[in-house]
């Protein structure tokens, strides 16, 4: 839950001044931090970021009365602008989720090196 909130807040705040793939970096950090359950951290990051991206998209969608989304949906052969909110959430969520997978393996590599360093001290 905490990691989901972090994912939500960080992808939202960072999004305004970092490149679009910032959730991937966020995902790596989350995966590194909570490597125990890969599936859980994947979905935490996915849902948190998807909510941030989709939520913001929804704000634009409703504030604009669906005008632009309706037209852009047509470009992609979709019938309804609402689909674009879902696609937006999916792209944001997957970017963060894929980040966690990499982060979890980083953590695994790190933890294997860590004990050796501790023993050497």
């Amino acid at each position: 839950m905490i990691s989901m909130l972090i994912a939500f807040a960080a992808s939202l705040l960072g999004g305004f001044f970092l490149p679009w793939w910032w959730p991937a970096v966020l995902g790596i950090a989350l995966g590194f931090w909570k490597p125990k359950s890969r599936l859980r951290i994947f979905f935490s990051a996915f849902i948190g970021t998807a909510l941030a991206w989709g939520g913001l998209a929804l704000v634009y969608q409703t504030g604009n009365h669906g005008l632009l989304a309706g037209r852009v949906a047509g470009i992609f052969g979709l019938s309804n602008g609402g689909w674009l909110v879902a696609v937006t959430a999916l792209i944001g969520g997957l970017t963060a989720g894929f980040g966690t997978l990499a982060g979890v393996y980083c953590s695994a590599v790190y933890s294997m090196f860590k004990p050796r360093r501790t023993s050497a001290q």
Binding site: G15, F16, W20, W53, L56, A57, Y60, Q61, G63, N64, L67, L68, A69, V72, L84, V87, T88, I91, G92
Partner: peptide, 12 residues
């Protein structure tokens, strides 16, 4: 699709 820099930002 990024709602921070993509097409959404063109929604008035």
């Amino acid at each position: 699709f990024s709602p921070f820099e993509g097409f959404w930002r063109n929604a008035e």
